[in-house]
């Protein structure tokens, strides 16, 4: 199909120009929401790095007399400001401990699946024919095998650990990226500039990595960010089946799952970790949208400054 009408961007529009780059910082500070998202993510990453060394002991100490200690009270010190969980551990510190695990799971699981899916999708879309067909079939197969089965198989081969969770979630999400990357590649492959590069004798490798991959990347990144929350929660369902993390290790999904039994009696046990997951996923989405806006004005989204036609072009 001819791409121009359906997908109107051209390579020129998608590539970064010096002008857009100079505007980046301005666009960033112009939106308080983007700043807030960045600050939140930076904070979470900082906590993830520092918490295990600083508060592990206190975070995991059970004091049954503080079971379901109510939130927003400081009698037990600031660490109980978000209340106590079902074993009387401070929820605030548990969240801090969970940050590291959740970040590791989200980063590596999403990283593995998106990179592999991205790479295979590029190859499949670029070469087409039987390569495309067989890679797509493999993706379909992966997509249809129940992730729980895969998880159990991994459990029977390895001991339960965070590593298993990453492998299982990583493998099962590959097809999503693969298909998206392939679809875009098929479309971009037909564009004039690719033809030009080909006629100038560029190698397949060069065309794929230099001409096509950068254009596919923003979509993959957007998708990956949208998957973050899903992956954090999916990890919890594996844990519940005895396949994932083991206590005293903790991640946010596990905290939500543990607290769901007490939704009626102690709402805060499940709600605080849930809110943290939503906030983190939301921040990641906002930042990724912003990045996309910076790179590609036609995709101009929400947080980009409203273009001012008269003055916008002036340096």
């Amino acid at each position: 199909m001819k791409g121009e009408d359906v997908m109107p961007q051209s390579s020129g529009q998608q590539r970064l120009s010096w002008f857009q780059r100079s505007e980046r910082w301005q666009m960033f500070t112009a939106s308080p929401m983007v700043v807030a998202s960045a600050v939140w993510l930076a904070f979470i990453v900082l906590v993830a790095v520092l918490a295990p060394a600083l508060v592990a002991e206190r975070a995991n100490f059970q004091n049954l007399s503080l079971r379901f200690f109510p939130p927003f009270q400081i009698e037990q010190g600031i660490e109980f400001i978000l209340g106590g969980d079902s074993l009387g551990r401070p929820i605030l510190l548990q969240l801090a401990m969970g940050a590291q695990t959740s970040m590791i799971i989200a980063f590596f699981a999403v990283g593995i699946s998106s990179l592999i899916g991205y790479a295979i999708g590029l190859v499949a879309g670029y070469f087409g024919g039987w390569v495309d067909n067989s890679l797509l079939r493999i993706a379909d197969i992966l997509h249809t095998v129940p992730s729980m089965l895969l998880a159990l198989v991994v459990l029977f081969i390895l001991e339960p650990s965070i590593f298993n969770v990453i492998i299982v979630l990583g493998i099962t999400r590959i097809p999503v990226y693969l298909r998206t990357a392939r679809a875009q590649t098929v479309e971009i492959r037909e564009r004039t500039f690719v033809e030009v590069a080909r006629s100038m004798g560029a190698s397949h490798w060069r065309i794929m990595t230099r001409e096509i991959a950068p254009l596919v990347f923003p979509t993959i990144r957007t998708l990956a960010v949208l998957e973050v929350a899903m992956v954090i929660l999916a990890a919890a369902s594996l844990t519940f089946l005895g396949i994932g993390l083991q206590r005293p290790d903790v991640d946010w999904g596990m905290m939500v799952a543990d607290g769901k039994t007490y939704l009626k009696t102690a709402w805060f046990v499940a709600v605080f970790p849930g809110v943290v997951i939503v906030l983190t996923a939301l921040s990641a989405s906002i930042l990724s949208n912003w990045l996309r806006a910076v790179e590609d004005p036609t995709q101009n989204i929400l947080f980009a400054r409203k273009p001012k036609p008269s003055r916008g072009k002036a340096p």
């Binding site: 159990l152 459990l155 029977f156 001991e159 339960p160 005895g242 396949i243 083991q246 206590r247 005293p248």
Partner: peptide, 11 residues
């Protein structure tokens, strides 16, 4: 001790 919470068959 190290806690190991397993699925039924593995348990």
């Amino acid at each position: 001790p190290r806690i190991l919470s397993l699925e039924n068959t593995a348990w």
